[in-house]
Design a protein around this nucleic acid. Structure first.
Lengths: 364, 364
DNA sequence: GCCAGGATAGAAAGCGCTTGCGCAAGAGTT
DNA sequence: AACTCTTGCGCAAGCGCTTTCTATCCTGGC
């Protein structure tokens, strides 16, 4: 029915097209590539032959002969993790805009697999390899990563780290971070401005740069507003819904509600905390105010005030920088470092604190 | 510091390794490929040379010479759409399990781009191309898609459709659907069993097979329980949070609350509807019961009773079937069709209806 | 009218790797 | 002791495409 042209078994090659069009392979190649003077009649014949044979170029042969391969790879823990999916989306878009193909690999958060994939991407000749998400990094991992960065660079490719700290100043790589400290400062400032002084911080994780940045911003805001920080108001735990729920539950069962607001390390943790609060008869924001971080879908659903991270822009920036390293002025030899701003998104999870011990906004 | 081995500019080739190891290229190739008798000493020399030169194979050359390319492609509307991300995750996992690389492309829901990408995947020699998500399909689109399926098949590749109806019985492709009708039947039955008879259905979309299946299941349940269906209880509109909010708001403002439960076409729509209800002073499940569909994260957050779709399994099944077509018995010539079961997930958004006009459960 | 130079197109040399084929040797076979 | 199998490895032929390097032919300029 529709197969009048897929006559030949297998797949037509450049040679077949050339034969059919009655020209040389070089000519066909040039017509297809463009940018070379070709007689209209010849071009016609070639195009017709291509059509008739349903010719499809072999990308591998092309890459082999032509050199560059035009692919960008992104290694995520999982695309099913919203945060990483957004970044992947940005990477994919920018790659497409730059006429590159996007290879996505899930590492499952396993450093071993991540390293293995980088190697694989080297084989693929990926022009850029962007790494997203957290992995526990020991020294061996760091060393190999440095080596990879070097190797990729030597091969005209580039390693890009998103949301991770730079490996070192002398390692050629693109690093795109977002402002954890600044966003947290804004969030806590918002709470303080609304009269909250006893703010519970959920999600302290020593050694995890993202978490550390947020806590630092929180503490700096406290200090700037002249509010003493209270160790008992900082609870350690991971990010995520489940941990958030557990941290909150534990805190509620361990003692009194001696805080009027909560700053959850990320939105999912906030969601979990909200559930825990509800189970203890506490409502947000009626009884307790809450702010989160990341601005994921759940934040919108819950009406949660949070800190927006320009996820897609992070991804886009990473590949843009990696692909056009010429435009990018680095800090160290080859190191290009960017930090994107975050932004406070005010919704309905914070209420002014007017109760006993509370006070009106410090300024305006 | 760590670059004692990346001495050579550019990248070491098989030839370099062979020279360094003092053997022929063929030998190196065989050692690396394995599955060929090789003297231990030779193998040692080769491996050492590989190490010393930091040799990385050229995947393109390998694909060109060896034949197969070992990549699987997935075309989604956007990985930032949770539903599709889950499926992509499944595809990625199965591809990895089968030693394939996974190429992810976002079409933005544009049929044109989708078609263009399929062509590109043909060039890449992808072993399978899985299509996810909805696109408006006109006849021309259908015709070209059929042609692509045919062409991919002829090239030893395979087209896989996830969550879409088959193109035709005679088109070689893998089709993996999930049971919309059955899931909806279960959801509505659940509502009916809880004594709800006046159920508002949100999201009628003629011509959209997914939506049609769900509505059909809903109606069949109604019929089986001897409840007359009421046209006024079926509101047309798209899936998604925004449409859900709007459908609900419009309904609420247009007339009385003459229903005790709501069946939202998908979870986001349910979330939107819940917000609209709240804005009108109605609470779920206190005032109105609600069920959704898809079992996305928001359903867990909202405690929404919904229908679970085995997203990842859909993706995995698609590539499994596409890659091992031998195991798969088809319906038509080359058509492999699977329909995965869905499952009702009961949470806290449905309350028995005991009010006037309500009645105790029909059975049990 | 003759030549420089642009427009066109072909021949051929690879890109880096896999593999069929052939050739040594050492290991078994009668 | 002559002979057939393995085992181990090198040779060389491509895989399908891009890209110099050339070879024509045609045009205008002086």
């Amino acid at each position: 029915m529709t197969d009048d042209l897929t006559a030949a078994p297998g797949r037509a090659t450049l040679r077949d097209v050339a034969a059919r069009a009655g020209v040389s392979m070089s000519t066909v190649s040039r017509v297809l590539a463009g940018g070379y003077p070709t007689a209209a009649s010849t071009k016609d014949k070639v195009l017709r032959a291509v059509e008739e044979l349903d010719y499809v170029a072999n990308a591998h042969a092309r890459a082999l002969a032509g050199g560059a391969s035009k692919t960008v790879a992104i290694l995520v823990g999982s695309v099913a993790i919203e945060f990483q999916a957004y970044i992947a989306q940005g990477v994919e878009e920018q790659a497409t805009d730059d006429k590159h193909l996007c290879l996505v690999c899930s590492t499952g958060g396993d450093p071993e697999r991540e390293l293995a994939y980088i190697q694989l991407m080297r084989e693929q000749g990926a022009r850029a390899v962007v790494l997203v998400g957290t992995v526990v990094a020991d020294d061996a991992y760091h060393a190999r990563m440095r080596q990879f960065a070097q190797a990729l660079d030597a091969a005209g490719s580039r390693l890009a780290l998103v949301g991770r700290p730079p490996l070192a100043r002398d390692v050629p790589a693109v690093v795109v971070e977002f402002d954890n400290e600044g966003g947290a400062y804004a969030a806590t400032s918002h709470l303080l401005t609304q009269g909250h002084e006893r703010i519970l911080y959920l999600g302290k994780q020593p050694g995890q740069t993202t978490a550390e940045g947020r806590l630092a911003g929180h503490l700096r805001a406290l200090a700037d507003f002249g509010v003493e920080s209270d160790e008992s108001l900082i609870v350690a735990g991971e990010f995520g819904r489940q941990p958030g729920y557990q941290m909150m539950t534990a805190r509620l069962e361990a003692g009194p509600v001696d805080f009027t607001a909560i700053f959850a390390g990320d939105d999912p943790a906030a969601a979990g905390a909200i559930q825990a609060l509800r189970e203890h008869g506490l409502r947000v924001p009626d009884d307790v105010s809450m702010v989160g971080y990341d601005d994921l879908a759940v934040a919108a659903d819950l009406g949660l005030t949070t800190v927006h991270i320009p996820h897609e822009e992070l991804g886009r920036t990473a590949v843009r920088l990696a692909l056009h390293q010429a435009d990018a002025r680095g800090e160290g030899p080859g190191l290009v470092h960017r930090k994107l701003a975050t932004q406070l998104i005010v919704r309905d999870s914070v209420r002014p604190n007017l109760g006993p011990g509370g006070r009106r906004p410090v300024r305006s």
